[in-house]
């Protein structure tokens, strides 16, 4: 979804930024959005400068959208964990390159 949408908007997405937010994402305001998630979940920095950056670069509505998407995936991630929905082997095989690149092979739980 990230790759498809970035392509649709003709952004030069660098997926490595998902693993290392210091790398430019290639998406407008993308690094600020990653910083917001990190600031909330890992407390890498105070929220205020990130909020100011997002509001300044993307607008106040963008900050609301980012927060609500974050909230939505806080929910969706928990639903996946508690339900134990299995990950199809086909999906793993098809995306093995991406899995290795982002180092998320350990997320496949049984």
């Amino acid at each position: 979804m990230l790759r498809a949408s970035s392509s649709a908007f003709e952004y030069g997405l660098d997926l490595d930024a998902l693993r290392d937010p210091a790398i430019p994402t290639g998406v407008p305001g993308g690094n600020l959005l990653l910083r917001l998630v990190d600031a909330v979940l890992v407390r890498t920095e105070p929220l205020e400068p990130v909020h100011g950056g997002i509001i300044g670069e993307l607008g106040p509505e963008a900050l609301v959208d980012a927060a609500s998407v974050f909230g939505n995936f806080e929910m969706m991630n928990r639903v996946a964990e508690v339900s134990g929905i299995p990950i199809p082997q086909q999906g793993i095989d098809r995306n093995q390159g991406l899995i290795d690149r982002l180092d998320i092979g350990g997320f496949v739980k049984h």
Binding site: S5, S6, A8, F9, L13, F70, N72
Partner: peptide
């Protein structure tokens, strides 16, 4: 794309 960056991270 911006939304999916947030969801992915």
């Amino acid at each position: 794309a911006q939304m999916e960056l947030v969801s992915s991270r």
